[in-house]
């Protein structure tokens, strides 16, 4: 009888919320079929295509200087965008959860903007601002600064697109934790900086790592916004996703899928790490 009352129970035979065996089997089968068809199959296909002509051809795709340059550009962009968004994200989450100020709800809405705007649009905005006909064009020309169709534009677009990831991860966490721990540290004589390093940061570390992971995955995989501002200059402004597209358009399928498989591996690694982090996080919360 107790089973009948407890909601999360999935095993109790005869529980009010448990469907018949047939219904359950069908529902679970549909879910697996759907996931297999739309998620697993494409992922497998990427690796199968990449390895179609053997490991030799697979690795030769990375010997190409353009591929190497694309990989190094992607890593560079992520190495700049992720730390910057780490700082922005912590600062934004901190100010939203620990202070009360005018325009707070506006700030929360703005943080979500990159989620709701199509990446292509955000790329175009940067073209309008910094492009040859853009708002800041005279200024940039005067100082010989190139942003659009150059690396700075790619970094800017990536920062824009990945901005919400860390802040969004931290805000609910920090809201739930409240400010009592910080206040306790202050009453014990800690300076604000000391308080941040010894109390706030340890409290949010798993959430922060998770946010960084998601941010990094998106920064490396972003296509739309980067595509608009990059100009697709081979060996110069091509990131991995753009390089995959170029190879594919040239019917160089094996090479395209080989680079794509690298991105897919990144996604899988992120997924595994995320699961580990969530597990650690639960352990920490549960004590």
């Amino acid at each position: 009888m107790r089973d009948a009352l407890s909601l999360p129970s999935t095993s109790g035979a005869g529980s009010v919320l448990t469907e018949s065996l047939r219904t359950r089997t069908v529902l679970i089968a549909i879910t697996f079929l759907f996931l297999g068809l739309f998620l697993v199959l494409p992922l497998v296909a990427v690796f199968v295509e990449a390895l179609r002509k053997g490991w030799g051809v697979f690795f030769s795709a990375f010997a190409d200087p353009d591929a190497r340059s694309a990989i190094s550009l992607t890593l560079t962009v992520a190495a700049i965008a992720v730390p910057l968004n780490l700082v922005f994200g912590v600062a934004a989450a901190w100010s939203i959860t620990k202070f009360d100020f005018r325009g707070k709800s506006l700030l929360v809405t703005l943080i979500d903007l990159p989620f709701s705007v199509s990446p292509v649009v955000s790329g175009l905005v940067y073209v309008l601002l910094f492009g040859a006909q853009g708002l800041f064009a005279p200024l940039l020309k005067a100082y010989h600064i190139e942003i659009i169709f150059a690396v700075p534009g790619i970094i800017l677009a990536t920062i824009f697109v990945t901005f919400p990831f860390i802040a969004r991860e931290l805000i609910p966490l920090m809201q739930e934790q409240g400010i009592a721990d910080e206040e306790a540290a202050l009453t014990l004589g800690a300076s604000p900086l000391r308080m941040f390093w010894t109390v706030t940061l340890p409290n949010i570390k798993w959430g922060l790592l998770y946010g960084v992971l998601l941010c990094n995955a998106r920064a490396m995989g972003e296509f739309g916004a980067v595509s608009v501002v990059s100009g697709h200059v081979r060996g110069l402004t091509n990131t991995m996703p753009l390089h995959v597209e170029i190879l594919y358009n040239e019917y160089n399928f094996v090479a395209a899928f080989a680079v794509a498989s690298l991105l897919a591996l990144l996604a899988l690694a992120t997924l595994v790490l995320k699961t580990v982090l969530e597990w650690r996080f639960d352990q920490d919360v549960a004590g």
Binding site: A180, D181, E183, A184, A185, T198, V199, P202, N203, D284, G287
Partner: peptide, 9 residues
């Protein structure tokens, strides 16, 4: 503090 605010780590 009411909920003690002990540093959990």
């Amino acid at each position: 503090f009411q909920q003690y605010a002990l540093f959990r780590h």
